[in-house]
Design a protein around this nucleic acid. Structure first.
Lengths: 260, 260
DNA sequence: GTCAGCATAGAACGACGTTCGGTCCGATGT
DNA sequence: ACATCGGACCGAACGTCGTTCTATGCTGAC
């Protein structure tokens, strides 16, 4: 019933993770003699996975494509990772880690919510250019190491507002949900590759949606026509920040109620 | 270069959609004589797809499984739908349509934001029990017929607040992003089927996460421990509503600024 | 020099979405 | 009454995917 072969690597990451580099002499000899066997590392596998995902999207992230990039075989990847799902999770956490590192120490504004805003925007910016990230973070955020760190960082800023645990918990969860949700929502749009590398402000995509909106019945869809011009001229990033500010205003209101 | 075989059904839905029922005499004879050939309809295909998705999740929604349920062949489905992606989109829109129908006419509160709240909660409730829905709605919401209707309904309520187009657009987009994002986020959790139909408040899943949170370092994760009790006792629906209220409070603040 | 076991390789497997040539059967024309 | 036509349906076949399994190269310990 149980697995006949014990998997070499489990999700929880035992104490004996395969080491990354640390093979100086071997590398030098590898340059001279073309070896048949490639040498990998968890770091290399995850990095190449991230590169593949960023370059060509989730559908192109194939174990075969990844193995080809690593110069090895398909089976080798399973030495470091027990499934594709785990690999993409690791890739997502990898990216989140670099976002965290990039914004570290820059959260010292007088207004706690200003720090929350900065942290949220940094995350949004990272996800919006990586469609594969958004969908992956949904529901998984608080289960990965860097996800926990991100959650904690948001929470520490909110704690400074002095609200009880209940309201603090709700506020942080709301912000996280809004950020992840909106980022995943907006990150989906670059669908058409547009062969030549021009990519004119992704006008084709927005133009098609705009035409569809324009064609809607004026009587039945008054709101759509009311905001049509805004939709035509809107910028995803600005729109996200505007929505975030609405949410933060609500949180500030709640905090004031406890401070008074 | 172009497709050799012109697809019978395109995304835009031409004027000649396959009719649904309307085969009284044939159905009566079919009951008597066991026919080898089954008769489908777009309605039946989408309905069975929704049922399959609801019962066993996205991974179980296979064209082969669907064909078996319909009592037909795999290829037949392609007469009504040009790809699996389109089928799932249709299924999502189908569900959203029933949510819209169920809440129709019940948006007549004195406070416009109360109606927004009701509409948002109805959507959330539908998504949270359908993990496959959340991920599908991301980025697609405003491109499907019922998605547009939903967007419009939210917008009409927000219009009553009397804000300029810009702020109205931002408010509706923020609400939609929050709802879809949070719903998709929370809808992911029922992973363990727990054979017997007991489902003890999905304690197993929450318990595992709770244990992980408890094990975190107290110095490094003060916020996590600050809200640990809340996390242990929280209800997803309540948490969503609390976050939504924060966002709505911010919107009301913005609206008041224009009213004064 | 030998040997254990770690790390790698790639063929093989089953399941998937999709395609394609074909078949059935009710409607139509004469 | 019969021939014909074409919309609706069928399922074998194809290529690709994630994953598994067995074989084998490589390296440090003795």
């Amino acid at each position: 019933m149980a697995d006949a072969r014990t998997p070499p690597r489990t999700r929880s990451g035992g104490p004996d993770r395969p080491r990354g580099g640390g093979r100086a002499g071997a590398a030098a000899r590898a340059a001279a003699t073309p070896r048949r066997r490639a040498s990998h590392s968890l770091e290399a596998v995850v990095s190449e996975a991230v590169a593949l995902l960023d370059e060509a999207g989730e559908s192109a992230m194939t174990f075969r494509a990844l193995a080809a990039r690593l110069g090895g075989g398909v089976g080798s990847i399973y030495w470091y990772v027990s499934s594709k799902d785990e690999l993409v999770d690791l890739a997502a956490d990898h990216v989140l880690g670099s976002v965290l590192a990039a914004t570290e120490g820059r959260t010292d504004a007088e207004d706690p919510l200003e720090d929350v805003r900065a942290t949220a925007v940094a995350f949004f910016d990272a996800v919006v250019v990586r469609p594969w990230l958004g969908a992956r973070f949904l529901g998984t955020t608080e289960q990965q190491p860097n996800g926990m760190l991100y959650y904690e960082r948001l929470g520490q800023q909110v704690m400074r507002l002095g609200m009880p645990p209940r309201q603090s918990f709700e506020a942080v969860s709301a912000v996280l949900g809004f950020v992840v949700g909106t980022a995943a929502d907006l990150g989906r749009q670059p669908a058409a590759p547009t062969k030549d590398g021009v990519v004119p402000e992704r006008d084709g995509d927005l133009g098609a949606a705009l035409a569809q909106w324009r064609a809607m019945d004026r009587q039945e869809f008054p709101f759509v026509h009311f905001i049509l011009d805004e939709f035509a001229a809107h910028d995803d990033g600005e729109q996200f920040r505007a929505g975030l500010d609405l949410l933060l205003a609500g949180i500030r209101l709640s905090a004031d109620r406890f401070r008074a």
